[in-house]
Design a protein around this nucleic acid. Structure first.
Lengths: 144, 144
DNA sequence: CCACAAGTTGAAGTGAACTTTAGGTCAAGG
DNA sequence: CCTTGACCTAAAGTTCACTTCAACTTGTGG
């Protein structure tokens, strides 16, 4: 069995079949079809799904992931170097997220004693630095 | 002007009037009404909103924030000590979020060289530790 | 050969946290 | 007094990333 059904792919990747089909609708993955119109996947698809899942953990939206995947060569199966290139860009993003949470934690430390939480005096409630982050998305609601 | 209209409260807190009304629907804030049925807020409401906004930055859902607010004394205006008590619990949560991102970053570092992203061999795609975090929510999609 | 698990589609539903809209009412300055 | 901007409500719409549903078709073990 050199090819995988959507069920097998789902089991091996840990991603629900409904999600895989959704990714196909969004253009993130593609599949060969059997004569009976069922999807069949080759092995490299597992790596593609791993990329998608990890990118999500880093905080990328599906739209951003789609853009990243679009830069892969279309004439051949992506190599490790291709995947490495894409994931290299995540590092600064992660660093920024971590730095932001650390700033929040430290500010919290200095504010916990006073319990001020004042909109004027306390930087906790005035996160001017949030827009600069651009990374994490959902966690930092101000950024929306 | 010892009391604020919803527009003034919005401007001072940076939270949209629609959001403030939504919080009221959800039971997170309350307001006195004028004879003409308009909302009027006292100053401490600014601190309450600051608390809500900061709690969101830490990654709490409105439901969790509501639970936290419910532990405040109802017979008097909350003191700084009250607010301090509530926000103290955020610290471990932030620490956990930061630790999780750092793990992801470090694993990414060791995987970037090989570009493997293999579902089997690479821990990047097998984040068993994710369920343990429980904090950040949206960013860590596996937790859903 | 046939039962039945696994696959197919399009459309609708989910949940979180709001925003927008429509159709009014209130209040303060000129 | 009157205009006009701020306020009111309920209900519907938005975004993201899926999941669920209904009705149907494929493919495989006994």
């Amino acid at each position: 069995m050199t090819e995988l059904t959507i069920g097998e792919l789902s089991e091996r990747s840990g991603i629900a079949t409904s999600a895989i089909r959704y990714y196909e609708d969004r253009g993130l993955v593609r599949a060969r079809r059997t004569t009976g119109n069922q999807r069949r996947y080759e092995r490299p698809m597992l790596r593609r799904l791993a990329f998608i899942r990890t990118a999500q953990r880093v905080g990328l939206s599906l739209e951003e992931i789609e853009e990243a995947l679009a830069t892969l060569p279309s004439n051949r199966t992506p190599t490790k170097a291709d995947w490495s290139r894409l994931s290299r860009g995540w590092r600064p993003r992660l660093d920024a997220q971590i730095a932001q949470l650390e700033r929040l934690r430290d500010t919290l430390d200095s504010c916990i004693g006073c319990g001020c939480l004042s909109l004027r005096r306390c930087t906790l409630s005035n996160p001017d630095d949030v827009a600069a982050g651009r990374g994490p998305g959902p966690v930092f609601l101000e950024g929306r």
